[in-house]
Design a protein around this nucleic acid. Structure first.
Length: 205
DNA sequence: AAAATGATCCTT
DNA sequence: AGGATCATTTTC
């Protein structure tokens, strides 16, 4: 178990590569209430202006007040947005400035601060804490205030954790992006194959 | 200016 | 299968 914090360089390549590399890493959030954390078991890459499912699809540059602006900056920052008017999604910005890519963190295997996460989620079932993008934001208390946060030093950060060999990883199509046409079939979702802590078992090959 | 639409979750 | 709930996007 490697507790070293991922440095900027880790995030400075394409979203698909970063999404794969993030499996097995530990996402940690330090709040006043305590520290909560989990191992990343499921991610999705959103590959910038060429990817019809990506929020920065066909966007050439940042524009005043737009939610995707952080994606145009350097990797290793948080892109958090409101979804369906009530949940949040946490993304890790990937790649170098000018290439607006990100990785959605879809599920964690709970590690630290389980009691605190149960209380925030209103459940006592470990299996229902972090199995979904909205759930893990609620469990770790990731909010819109974390938009733009630097993941290389701050209240949210990611450590090296455990290496996941290729035999234990699986690429599938992404969840709930059917509107994106051909792009909805790209194998941009990555999961730890045998994990019991995924958002869904749908589309497992 | 108004209507539609989600990278979701929970309950029925 | 359907409702909650609102910022952004699309349409009029």
């Amino acid at each position: 178990m490697d507790d070293s914090v991922l440095e900027r360089e880790f995030y400075m390549e394409g979203a698909v590569a970063v999404a794969r590399k993030l499996l097995g890493k530990i996402l940690i959030l330090r709040s006043r209430e305590g520290e909560t954390s989990g191992m990343i078991t499921e991610t999705e890459a959103y590959a910038g202006r060429e990817d019809a499912a990506c929020h920065s699809y066909k966007r050439e540059s940042p524009s005043a007040g737009h939610r995707t602006n952080v994606m145009f900056g350097p990797g290793g920052h948080a892109y958090v947005y409101l979804i369906y008017g009530m949940h949040r999604c946490f993304n890790v910005v990937a790649n170098t400035p000018g290439l607006p890519e990100a990785v959605l963190v879809r599920a964690l295997e709970p590690r630290g601060g389980v009691e605190l996460m149960c209380s925030r989620r209103g459940t006592s079932k470990i299996g229902n804490l972090c199995g979904g993008p909205g759930k893990l934001c609620q469990a770790l208390d990731i909010t819109l205030a974390d938009y733009g946060a630097d993941l290389c030093g701050g209240r949210i950060f990611i450590t090296r954790g455990e290496d996941v060999p290729d035999g234990d990883a699986l690429a599938t199509r992404r969840i709930n992006v059917d509107y994106a046409g051909e792009a909805s079939g790209y194998p941009y979702r990555f999961v730890i194959r045998e994990s019991r802590f995924l958002s869904t078992r749908r589309y497992v090959v």
